[in-house]
């Protein structure tokens, strides 16, 4: 093992849920400070890959490591403090109201931190300011718009001051203007030396920020390397060519018969 383990190492990881293979022998290494996009069609296994890293889906073969610690075998010892996760679904909107601030403060909890400390509210306010939602602190989380809720979820991850940010479809339900804001924010975080891994349906405004793209198809990695930068078909680079010379990564063309059962995990 190297002295400073990589944030993410997947060695031949296979994931199966209820007899269905969702990932098949995936190898992936994300080095410290990298910004990586996970691309692919619906059901290609992007979100499953992120969840495998986090030990939240049954890994049936291989091993997933976070900063050198296996989340398959030793999840309790993994350095969760260094991880900031922004899930695709932003928590059920239940009958009980909760303010955006209350949601953000949950990001400060951890294995040995079951209670909040005095300074935690200030830290949560700072994180909300960082993503431009400071004024929403006292609003009920359930009434926020998609873009607002998404930013609150990012604040909840950032309040942990994570070395590794994992974002699952951060652009879902976010308008174009806000997307640009997100890109700036993540660019700044990247410059601070944080490692960023994003599940994306299309590159959107993130093309310039990313160092590398990993494309999945039916549970396997089919491309790992340069970003398909082409804004227009015709100027496509080699990576984009691999993706059917498509200017964005709706891989529906690549994988027309995507199995509906893989669309979402329970």
């Amino acid at each position: 093992m190297p002295l400073t383990p990589d944030p993410i190492e997947l060695d031949g990881v296979s994931v199966a849920v209820g007899g269905t293979r969702l990932l098949e022998a995936v190898d992936l290494r994300v080095r410290s400070g990298e910004a990586v996009a996970l691309l692919g069609a619906n059901g290609s296994g992007k979100s499953t890959l992120v969840r495998a890293v986090l030990g939240q889906v049954p890994v049936v073969a291989g091993d997933a490591r976070l900063f050198g610690v296996s989340t398959r075998h030793a999840a309790a010892r993994a350095p969760w403090r260094r991880v900031g996760y922004v899930p695709q679904r932003l928590g059920a909107v239940s009958g009980v109201p909760a303010t955006a601030l209350e949601v953000v403060t949950t990001g400060l909890l951890g294995r040995r931190r079951l209670r909040l400390r005095r300074a935690d509210t200030d830290r949560a306010h700072q994180a909300m300011e960082q993503v431009g939602v400071a004024d929403l602190a006292d609003r009920p989380f359930g009434v926020l718009s998609g873009g607002q809720a998404q930013r609150v979820a990012i604040a909840r991850a950032l309040v942990r001051d994570p070395d590794l940010l994992l974002l699952d479809e951060p652009l879902a339900g976010v308008d174009v203007l806000t997307q640009a804001t997100f890109a700036r924010l993540l660019g700044d975080l990247h410059e601070q030396g944080r490692t960023i891994v994003m599940v994306l349906h299309e590159l959107g405004p993130f093309g310039d920020l990313l160092d590398r793209a990993v494309v999945l198809r039916a549970g396997s990695v089919v491309h790992d390397g340069a970003i398909p930068r082409a804004e227009h078909p015709g100027t496509a680079g080699p990576a984009a060519a691999h993706l059917h010379e498509h200017d964005h990564l709706h891989l529906d063309h690549v994988m027309p018969t995507e199995p509906a059962t893989q669309r979402s995990l329970p």
Binding site: G55, A78, Y85, L109, R111, L114, R115, R156, L166
Partner: peptide, 22 residues
């Protein structure tokens, strides 16, 4: 006593797991 931790788990179990909460 465990109000915030129980809230976190009830609000978003997936995220709560990723923070290392038991």
């Amino acid at each position: 006593g465990l109000r915030t931790a129980l809230f976190a788990v009830s609000h978003d179990e997936e995220f709560a797991r990723s923070t290392g909460l038991p």
